[in-house]
Design a protein around this nucleic acid. Structure first.
Length: 480
RNA sequence: GCCGCGUUCGUCUAGUGGCCUAGGACAUCGGGCUUUCAUCCCGAAAAUCACGGGUUCGACUCCCGUACGCGGUACCA
């Protein structure tokens, strides 16, 4: 069987939700694994929640993560259009067909009337099926008068609907849990339930992958497939990502937009790799693997049904692993793309070998290397952390020594000279070099000292050391 | 409320009846390397497998119940 999967987002957010990305990744990988197709369909049926530009952002995000789709709004395919707002007549036709078949009906009740009925029902404490199934007289006349109506599915009573979910196995839900669903809204748009079934059928989607919040809706879809006499697809409900408090991952408690992670300097490969591990384990328990390998090893049936908590610490570790695995050239390229307009931009190539093992995200490059191209800000507290007396005097000696070293400075000579100075001053090498580091960078932690000094340049380094020697100890004792 | 799904170290997880006195990874802590930090290497601590009953010679693994968590219950998806 030719496997066809789809990602069917609603363009109602600022971007792709990271939880969605996790679902898309698995949906995409499953199609690729089976040499099938992965389809992007835009479910823009809620006119009120529509967000301008959202669709474009979703497509951009898929592109940025290299999750390419075979068919979609702007990519060819024989089953289009792939935007539901452009298929309204199709849904209407099928909804009317259901009426003809007697499994759906027109409902002219207003929202207020429905509320009323619902209250009455609660008071009676008796569940009457087909609550909305009323006023079925003079349908033709009311339709021609263009009265407002919806089309509802006539959900049968007391019927167990069972389906076999790839991840969870058999799930049974009784139809008494389901109201007569609206299929076609009064604005002429379909609801999700109608549109998703019709489109999945017409687009020959045979593996329905989606987040597990859809489990309780699945019987509604099955009812529709049965009413039309269509073959059922395979259902696969993937676990929902959670906040630390276990609630479903939400923007109030977490960064949820996929682009945010990219903006923070996480690599797309690392994000995808981490997401792959949410609910799935590599058969050899490998943590780091390529997308190619993921496609090869992944199977929907191996997904764990438990909703995992999104742990940014592990993502960060993994991102560091990916950064270190990059060639210097490639890392340079990534940093240049990432750090547009950054003052140290010209030095990136030279700095890469020095910072590669020190950064976990691309953004970490900035605080680590700012001092290269910008005058340092000094903090007396930092100087106080160097355990040695008479710092002013030592700084003066350092300054003098620096002036007398033969230019261009050579690493071995530079280090020998200051090791000797440390000996003369009866202090440790550690303290000596920390003091130089502070004088040059204003920081206790930097990439390798001498290499940084070479990038900054002898003259500038000398200037900085002289300056701070003059000022010391009259510098602020705490950074803003 | 009703319905559904879930429950192994703080977190992601391995585990499909004996190999489990429960393994790995992140995080944490200690040590080594290092003129700083990091990388790297070594080590430690960390789960009475939610709880209670069964089934079985034997259960983390199968069954039932309870608790807890999450999700659904819209003219939202």
């Amino acid at each position: 069987m030719n496997v066809r999967t789809r990602f069917a987002p609603s363009p109602t957010g600022d971007d792709i939700h990271i939880g969605n990305l996790s679902t898309v990744l698995k949906t995409w990988a499953f199609a690729k694994k089976n040499n099938g197709q992965f389809v992007l369909r835009i479910e823009d049926t809620d006119q009120e929640r529509l967000v301008e530009g959202s669709e474009q952002k979703i497509e951009d995000a898929l592109k940025r993560f290299s999750l390419n789709y075979d068919e979609g709004p702007d990519v060819g395919g024989e089953f289009g259009p792939y935007r539901q707002s452009e298929r309204l007549d199709i849904y209407k036709k099928y909804a009317e067909e259901l009426i003809t078949k007697g499994v759906a009906y027109y409902c002219f009740c207003s929202k207020e009337r429905i509320e009323e009925l619902r209250k009455q029902e609660e008071q009676k404490e008796v569940k009457t099926k087909h609550l909305h199934f009323c006023n079925q007289n003079n349908i033709e006349e009311r339709l021609s008068k263009k009265e407002s109506y919806v089309i509802r599915l006539k959900v049968p009573e007391h019927q167990d609907i069972t389906f076999d979910d790839i991840v969870r196995g058999k799930i049974t839900i009784n139809t008494d849990q389901i109201d007569d669903q609206i299929l076609l809204k009064s604005d002429g748009f379909p609801t999700y339930h109608l549109a998703v079934v019709i489109d999945d059928y017409l687009m020959k989607i045979n593996y329905i992958t989606r987040a597990d919040e859809w489990i309780s809706s699945t019987p509604k879809h099955i009812l529709l497939y049965q009413a039309f006499g269509w073959e059922l697809p395979v259902f696969c409900h993937l676990p929902l990502l959670r906040n630390t408090d276990k609630s479903k991952l939400s923007k109030r408690k977490n960064a949820v937009w996929a682009s945010w992670y990219l903006e923070q300097g996480y690599l797309k490969e690392a994000i995808l790799n981490y997401l792959a591990l949410m609910g799935w384990t590599h058969p050899e328990q490998k943590e780091i693997f390529s997308m190619e390998e993921f496609i090869e090893k992944f199977d929907l049936k191996d997904v764990n049904p438990l909703g995992p908590i999104f742990d940014i610490q592990k993502l960060e570790w993994m991102n560091g692993e990916y950064i270190r695995a990059l060639s210097d050239q490639e890392l340079t390229k990534r940093l240049e793309e990432y750090l547009i307009d950054h003052p140290s931009k010209d030095h990136i190539a030279k700095l890469v070998p020095l910072v590669k093992e020190r950064i976990k995200k691309l953004s970490d490059f900035i605080p680590l290397t700012n001092f290269i191209s910008q005058s340092p800000e000094y903090d007396l507290n930092d100087f106080n952390k160097v355990k040695v007396d008479d710092k002013k005097e030592i700084l003066e000696k350092i300054s003098l020594t620096l002036e007398n070293i033969e230019k261009p400075w050579k690493k071995e000579n530079f280090e020998n000279t200051f090791q000797n100075l440390a000996k003369d001053l009866n202090m440790g090498n550690r303290e000596m070099f920390q003091l130089i580091r502070l004088a040059v960078s204003g920081q206790l932690v930097t990439p390798p000292l001498f290499e940084c000094i070479k990038i900054i340049g002898e003259d500038e380094v000398l200037n900085r050391v002289k300056e701070i020697t003059k000022k010391y100890p009259n510098i602020p004792d705490s950074k803003g």
